[in-house]
């Protein structure tokens, strides 16, 4: 079936409008980040500043201990990633490949945990952390996410799909369980692990709620919390500085997205696709 030219044109215009709705805000963000404070207060607004003010980025960066925030963000995101691989892989392997007492009950526990959001338990966890003296430390940001119910669930599915024969072949090859897991299962689950890794990294890099709640001073804060605080710098809102800060936060993720679009989309839509 061929559609007529006007219809096709309409379609393309429609697509352009859709892209505009979703891309324009980001362009606006970048545009603002290069303006002077005065230029942000013009109506109708200017899209292209007279002269790009790169200094805004320096100002944003220097308005707080951003190097510290950045390092904290990296430590937290990467730390969570490492912990999760250490805890999720063996658990998923056990759930996929062993029969043991209480297996179903324990897996039920995992599924229940999957449905408990941080927003539900932050208050008691806060009280616990303060009791244990790890409030306002990076540990408080990492340990609660040291494992992932969703990760266990997803990786278990993948492990279950590995043909039984392969594991039997390995057992006959006198392989230890640990070696079966690391040399056969894990390499076969590589796509899932990449997916999980990306999902986790992005989620925790972006996270604002938990670090906001679990930190009381600058020393353990992460980038999103720091950026959110730019707002409170002085009386009025310096939108140019604020947007510059957000560009710093957003650009790395957009770049990753640009290069790994497929993987990231897979990572974030996995649950729905099932």
């Amino acid at each position: 079936m061929k559609t007529s030219l006007p219809l096709r044109l309409l379609n393309v215009i429609g697509l352009i409008i859709v892209v505009a709705i979703f891309a324009m805000p980001f362009i606006w963000m970048i545009s603002t980040s290069l303006k002077t404070l005065g230029e942000t207060m013009i109506f109708p607004p200017k899209w292209i500043p007279d002269e790009p003010i790169w200094q805004n980025f320096m100002d944003a960066w220097n308005s707080g201990p951003f190097l510290q925030y950045f390092i904290n963000s990296v430590i937290v995101s990467v730390g969570i990633l490492i912990f999760q691989f250490i805890t999720v892989i063996p658990a998923a392997y056990a759930f996929a490949r062993y029969e043991f007492r209480f297996k179903n009950a324990l897996f039920g526990l995992v599924m229940v945990t999957m449905m408990i959001p941080a927003q539900l338990i932050f208050l008691p966890v806060f009280l616990n952390l303060s009791e244990w003296g790890i409030l306002d430390t990076l540990w408080g940001l990492i340990l609660p996410f040291a494992t992932s119910a969703f990760g266990i669930f997803m990786l278990r599915q993948t492990f279950k799909q590995v043909p039984e024969e392969l594991l039997e072949a390995a057992r006959l090859d006198n392989s230890t369980d640990l070696k079966i897991m690391m040399k056969i299962m894990v390499p076969m689950a590589k796509p899932t692990l990449i997916t999980l890794g990306l999902f986790n990294f992005i989620t925790h890099w972006n996270d604002y709620f938990w670090p906001l709640v679990m930190t009381t001073t600058e020393k353990a804060r992460t980038l999103p919390v720091g950026i959110a605080q730019l707002r409170q710098v002085d009386g009025g809102v310096a939108w140019n500085i604020l947007m510059a800060g957000n560009v710093i936060l957003v650009i790395p993720i957009l770049i990753i997205f640009f290069f790994a679009q497929r993987h990231i989309i897979r990572a974030f839509t996995y649950t729905g696709v099932k």
Binding site: P163, E165, L166, E168, A169, A170, R171, L172, D173, N174, S175, K183, I184, P187, M188, K190
Partner: peptide, 21 residues
């Protein structure tokens, strides 16, 4: 005795070759 220590080799119906090696 564990399978790997019985001095037995097995050939499977679906070959069971390790796909990542």
């Amino acid at each position: 005795v564990a399978p790997g220590k019985r001095g037995i080799s097995m050939v499977f119906q679906n070959y069971a070759l390790y796909p990542t090696m």
